[in-house]
Structure formats: C-alpha cells, structure tokens
C-alpha cells in the first residue's frame, strides 16, 4: 500500500494552491509534539505554517505548542476525537478536514499544515483524504522489536522516525537491529534516527520535509 499524494478532489471550491498536508502519527510519548515544535521552529521563516492537533484527552499538545510559542496561537487548532484518535485521522476525517480548511481560510495561502495525531497504536495511519504525506514516530524505549512487528504506521509511512536514540543503551535497544528490521519491513522507504533531546533541530527530518515541500510546490 503506497501512500501517494492526495487525488486533488476538493470538497469545497477549488483553491488556487492548497497547502501540503503532513500527518505525524505514532504512539503516546514517542515525541510527536516535540517533532512538530522542531519543524515549526525551523521552517516558520521559510514557509507559511499551521498545525492541527488531535489530543486524546485535553488540548495538552496544542497548549504545549502555544506555550513554547513556536507559532502564533491562532495558527494552532485542536480537534477532539471522542476516545478514538485513529478514527479521526482515518475513518472519519471530517473534523480534521474542517480544522485544516478553517486554518487555510483564515491564514492562507499556507505552504504546510501539520496534522498531529493523538497517541495511538502501530496500526494507526492517516487517510489519504487528509494527509498528502505522513511521518510515523516511534521511540527506542518500546524495545528494538517494534519495527520488526510492523503494522501500517511503521511499514507504509513516508518517513519513519525512531526517536530517543540517546536512551538506547539504557533500555537495551539495539539500533542496528531496528535499522535492519525497519529497512526490511519498509521496502526501502526512508528511516531517520533522532534524539530530539540531544538535537532539538532534527536535521534529517527537517531536510526530508523541505524536500517534500519543494516537490509539492513544483507539482
């Protein structure tokens, strides 16, 4: 299953140029919000940005982003998911589409809208109707077997990020095993190993997003 670009059919009137929609998913605590914050800090000078968060519980993620002032407050919207974060990004994306379009109407034209999912399990992926591209964020503390276990998030995301590499020695996770397994289950799709604690600027991920943005602008 490839996660190709959006088919371009818009439920509303066609827009001259719509922002790239980037989904960021992964389990609770893997570093999704820290990655969103890093992307905002590093890309906000060169790209018009907005963020939609899908908190499981509260508006904690949106509040974190606002508190850290990575974006103007009104460029961050929070969607509630009725206990089902995967439903809101995959089966019934209406609230997320509504939030994305509201941000585009309010601040457009935008270059990039990041949709951060609520923390979920390994089977959660974004609908192609919501995200043009998606990043799945794991961390090493779940054990080095996680990439091997696969699941649609791990196997099909356009970029797999394995975060908290600084913890690997502490939790007995072998990064070479994770890299080898990830390569095998992802059939060559890219993987980035990060430690957002040690390198809050996540250079590999930022370069990947820059390349995706450039391709979107050319399309």
């Amino acid at each position: 299953m490839g996660l190709g670009p959006h088919d371009g059919r818009e439920p509303r009137e066609p827009r001259p140029r719509r922002a790239l929609r980037l989904g960021i998913g992964g389990p609770v605590g893997s570093g999704k919000t820290a990655l969103v914050a890093a992307l905002c800090r590093l890309l906000r000078e060169e790209a018009a940005l907005a963020v939609v968060t899908n908190d499981i519980y509260t508006t904690e993620d949106a509040d974190f982003l606002r508190r850290n002032a990575v974006l103007d407050e009104d460029r961050i919207a929070a969607v509630r998911t009725g206990c089902c974060p995967h439903t809101a990004i995959r089966d019934d994306i209406s609230a997320n589409l509504d939030a994305v379009e509201t941000l585009e109407d309010r601040h457009g034209p935008l270059d990039l809208v990041i949709v951060e999912s609520g923390g979920d399990n390994l089977t959660a992926t974004f609908s192609r109707g919501l995200a043009d591209r998606q990043i799945f964020v794991l961390d090493v503390s779940g054990g080095d077997k996680v990439p091997r276990k696969g699941g649609p998030g791990v196997t099909t995301a356009d970029l797999l990020v394995v975060n908290k590499t600084d913890l690997a020695p502490l939790v007995g996770a072998d990064l070479t095993v994770m890299a080898r397994d990830a390569e095998r289950v992802r059939a060559g799709l890219p993987v980035a190993f990060t430690s957002l604690r040690e390198r809050p600027d996540a250079p590999e991920v930022v370069s990947w997003v820059r390349a995706v943005l450039a391709a979107h602008a050319d399309a």
């Binding site: 509630r80 009725g82 089902c84 439903t87 809101a88 089966d91 019934d92 994306i93 209406s94 609230a95």
Partner: peptide, 11 residues
Amino acid sequence: SRLPAGGHAHS
C-alpha cells in the same frame, strides 16, 4: 454511525 460525518466525536 460509520458515516464519516463527525458523529463519533460527539456525545
């Protein structure tokens, strides 16, 4: 209820 019209997030 599976109609993708946002109902799942309302109580």
